[in-house]
């Protein structure tokens, strides 16, 4: 199952990932995230009083504004905005601040494939930085199906273009728990196995889809550990003296 990949990566090998919080001084929460060459900066403003028209005033409203690196906002950007909004509505606790609006601005600094996972990690880190109440963190991964039927993770722009099909999956991050391992509780299990978002493009068989979900899920724990570690190092410097 060996596929030649750019930079000598294995099929399941992700590009180096970096994430730093509090990169902007005026935003209430901000973060920049990079997967290899792909880089996204996210800023959170709010929560501000009042919801937008056609939104439920008994819940918090999330507004996502996607800024492409160059050019005008088109259909692709609008689609990303919608996917991000729906994904975030599933991980945020919307009832804590009812009748408020939180704006999230996503600026693409460079697109080299797997843009959506990178944007999801950046917004997630920015929400954590802003102190927005969250059910859990979100971990996203892009899976690609090559012409000869192999599944590769975290494709670059070049690989994305050559692909037969790709699927972008968002999972809730793995959590630390005081509950014993293998607890039979239903709620604990659902977080372990849930999928928040699945976005597929191109033609793939059902078997291939389930195979890529499996591959993606295997990457959840290492990815969430990396994300948490990156965020933790910054907490430590802020809170070391507060203890």
């Amino acid at each position: 199952m060996n596929v030649e990949r750019e930079g000598g990566r294995g099929t399941n090998q992700l590009r180096p990932m970096d994430c730093s919080r509090n990169v902007l001084s005026r935003a209430h929460g901000s973060a920049s995230c990079s997967h290899g060459e792909t880089k996204v900066i996210a800023a959170v403003f709010g929560p501000k009083a009042g919801t937008k028209k056609n939104e439920n005033p008994e819940k918090a409203c999330i507004e996502v504004i996607w800024k492409p690196k160059t050019g005008q906002i088109g259909k692709r950007e609008k689609e990303f905005e919608m996917i991000l909004k729906r994904t975030l509505e599933n991980i945020c606790l919307l009832t804590v601040h009812p009748n408020t609006t939180t704006s999230i601005i996503v600026q693409v600094a460079h697109d080299d494939g797997s843009l959506l996972p990178c944007a999801i990690h950046a917004t997630c880190a920015a929400l954590v930085d802003a102190g927005f109440p969250l059910k859990s963190l979100a971990v996203a991964i892009c899976c690609c199906l090559t012409e000869n039927g192999h599944i590769i993770l975290d494709p670059s722009k070049l690989e994305e273009q050559k692909m037969k099909a790709f699927v972008c999956l968002v999972f809730p991050s793995s959590v630390n728990s005081v509950l014993p391992e293998g607890s039979t509780d239903a709620s604990a299990k659902s977080t372990e196995q849930g999928i928040i978002t699945s976005l597929s493009h191109g033609v793939m068989t059902v078997d291939d889809y389930f195979h890529s979900v499996e591959q993606g899920r295997a990457a959840v724990t290492p990815l969430s550990n990396i994300l948490k570690k990156k965020m933790q190092s910054q907490f430590a410097s802020n809170l070391s003296k507060a203890g």
């Binding site: 969250l134 963190l137 809730p172 630390n176 728990s177 977080t191 948490k228 933790q232």
Partner: peptide, 14 residues
């Protein structure tokens, strides 16, 4: 996990 870093979703008490 008292006095340790926690993240959204972590279960701390049963």
């Amino acid at each position: 996990t008292v006095d340790q870093q926690v993240f959204p979703g972590d279960v701390v008490l049963d």
